[in-house]
Write a protein that binds this DNA or RNA. Sequence first.
DNA 1: GTGGTCTAGACCACT
DNA 2: GTGGTCTAGACCACG
Lengths: 126, 126, 126, 126
Amino acid sequence: MGVDFQPDKPIYQQLIDRLAGEIIRSIRKPGDKLPSVREYAVETGVNANTIQRVYREMEQMEIVQTKRGQGTFVTEENARLVSLREDMKQQYVEAFVKDMRELGFTTTEMIRGLEEYHDEQEDRDD
Amino acid sequence: MGVDFQPDKPIYQQLIDRLAGEIIRSIRKPGDKLPSVREYAVETGVNANTIQRVYREMEQMEIVQTKRGQGTFVTEENARLVSLREDMKQQYVEAFVKDMRELGFTTTEMIRGLEEYHDEQEDRDD
Amino acid sequence: MGVDFQPDKPIYQQLIDRLAGEIIRSIRKPGDKLPSVREYAVETGVNANTIQRVYREMEQMEIVQTKRGQGTFVTEENARLVSLREDMKQQYVEAFVKDMRELGFTTTEMIRGLEEYHDEQEDRDD
Amino acid sequence: MGVDFQPDKPIYQQLIDRLAGEIIRSIRKPGDKLPSVREYAVETGVNANTIQRVYREMEQMEIVQTKRGQGTFVTEENARLVSLREDMKQQYVEAFVKDMRELGFTTTEMIRGLEEYHDEQEDRDD
DNA sequence: GTGGTCTAGACCACT
DNA sequence: GTGGTCTAGACCACG
């Protein structure tokens, strides 16, 4: 049971997260070419405009780079990529803590919550 | 730091979270009367319709109960309230973990992130 | 499970129905004195104004009669009481059928629904 | 006839019932797109906010699903739709029986009432 | 163009 | 005075 809640994140955000995750995990490496907007749109079953936005925002974050007429590439600037990982962690942690505190949870409870959730799932690799 | 940033949650959601937090923390106890729609609207500086929605949704979640012509009250059914706390923790933790994993973080890193963030802030009591 | 829905009827309506039912079933007979407004308010745990309204509306329906300084009585006029039973049945049936049809149910299904519901409950006397 | 009479249900409820009826009767099938909020507002002559509410509540009931920027659709999850029909019947029957019993009617009388009411109307096909 | 949020303000039903 | 419904109309986020 439970209530329900927590509306889905916007698709473009989900895709940014996914791509960022792949870059962070080195599934996509500096200099790699990303799929073309159309390709990726088809691959993900999403409107091309949405992919456009994904690439545009990632470019603003400087984690990808568009080369005229050639496509979009994972940025070569390695420093940016390193900080990216920490930046994103920071951001998500902050938002989470802010929400949880508003609900009256202590940091200790949050950590315990993570541990419990983690333990409830066997096949995890970390 | 980063570029990206999370847009604010809708006001009515923020208020639900705030009230839920107050109930969870026993600042508002079972049977307590909540401020009237109009009162709370003034108090929070938002429109009465928005408060209406807050109360309506909380009623659907069964954490609040409205008595015709009398007002809105924290539900007496204590079991619901206890599970509420866990439900909400569960929900937020899950969403957080899901996001973080997509970004390639391990549970250990998430916990470390929480601890670091917590340590960076003095005046905390937990 | 299921959804939820069907908000409670207003209290004064519930009380009218209850009293009407008692009169229909001859639990309260023509000429019987009803409890005073205050008495009945205490007995039912309801605001005296609400009881006021109950008696007022029942008077308009001519099923009770107020005698100045003496109280409220079940009407002596027997004809009214006989038709009352049919009137109310008629009214409720109509409303029910109207709702059910809007939802796409046939009369046959409604009847079957009643029968099934009835069968699901042992301790019934009819 | 009587004096009493039931006040209209709120518009948004009527519209929910109507749409639910259409879905139950397969006039609208799983996957079908509902009219846009604004379209349906015009079509029904009510305010767009009211339609919003209709769609929102139907979504909570899981009989409808909204896809960001694309519209609102009859849920594909057929199981939900099947149970919906029974759920709604159940709910309405229960409420009706509860009311009628309070008024002192037996199941047999209720059924007879339905039959009579049905017979009084010619052009019915069921 | 789609749904979603919010406002300001009217009006109603119930207690 | 309490909650509840509805409107008209603005503005935003998403695809």
